[in-house]
Amino acid sequence: MPDLSLEVNGKTLPVKDVDPSTPLLWVLRDHLGLVGTKFGCGGGFCGACTVQLDGKPIRSCSVTVSSAVNGKITTIEGLASVDNVLHPLQQAWIELDVAQCGYCQAGQIMSAAALLSKNPKPTDADIDDAMSGNICRCATYTRIRKAIHTAADKLAALSTEIGGVV
């Protein structure tokens, strides 16, 4: 089986001896040891495996590794800044204590991050729409929605600060 390389969280990582039709999910988890991306259904139904490919949310269980070789992949492990400052979504998730079991939350946060990067001030309807591919079996939906608004406010405050300096 061939060797490939993937660009994950800003690093180019070699993937040895992999069937090119392997879903990206399992390459991330089993080959690269990035287990933050979760397996929930394997069929594109639950969103637990959501990562970003070139900034767009994708279900990594339903995308082959070969179709991701030319893109930039961001996983939950790469969402915080390089100096480990948490993304406003991650901060909001902790502040509002969103998680119950926590298993779906990496996927939820990756979907939410993709939303905020193109729509920094989403309405409830925007959020419901962007998050419709993510199931939370523990049903933390109320807090997820609130945390996305909180993170949007944090982002706005951040850009005002930066704007002020510039």
Partner: peptide, 29 residues
């Protein structure tokens, strides 16, 4: 009081935490 869950940081940063995240040397799947 309102206390945030003790594993929340690991959850939101995707650190190994759940049963399915277990990896041992020479492990088979």
């Amino acid at each position: 009081k309102r206390i945030s869950g003790v594993d929340n940081r690991k959850i939101v940063t995707g650190q190994p935490l759940f049963g399915i995240d277990t990896v041992l040397p020479n492990m088979l799947y």
